[in-house]
Amino acid sequence: MAEPFTTLTSLPMPLIRDNIDTDQIIPSREMKSTGKTGLADGLFAGWRYTDIGGRDADPNFVLNDPQYAESQIILGGANFGCGSSREHAVWALVEYGFRAVIAPSFAPIFAGNCMRNGILPAVIDPDAIAVMAEAKGPVTIDLGAQKISIDAGQSWSFPIDDEAKAMLLEGLDAIDLSLKMATDIATWQEADRAQRPWIYLGANQ
């Protein structure tokens, strides 16, 4: 079960590049065990360290800028999280301490993975993201109101579907919710089996 997400105020870390893929968020070489942890050190490893596989911080990369050390929000570019479906990208973000990504668009699998792990993927116009980055101050996200604001007074709305919102707000587990619908599922499968028996594989294949 993910940590509930209600409101969040944090200095956002600007990483405004289009098409940031999950290979950059967590390179495959940094996925070293079958577990879901031990990934924070690998977050943005290719950009964060001076050498591939090394651990010497590259001071030119924004994640290593001390002012963003406590940042919980990333300002990203379009098509954020494209590429591989690896949920490790989101697990690494969570483990490092990020709770939200604000970007003009997200790759669909990445956005789904975010929702399942208590990270808010907020879709915001690139011009507004530029204003947030320029402000160089904290950003407040109010999920209930679907609103993002900065201290200067400006605010922007973001869309999110009702279920994703409710699940993030309450930290609900999707499997628990769906298992409560076991009777609906069984009824549907019984009817479907009569129409498409070939879908329901037996032991004889």
Partner: peptide, 22 residues
Amino acid sequence: WGIGSSEAEHAMATGTLRLNKP
């Protein structure tokens, strides 16, 4: 279509996924 690990768990445990129609 491709999914993450949590969705794979959901599909295996329930035989379903919760989706918005694209």
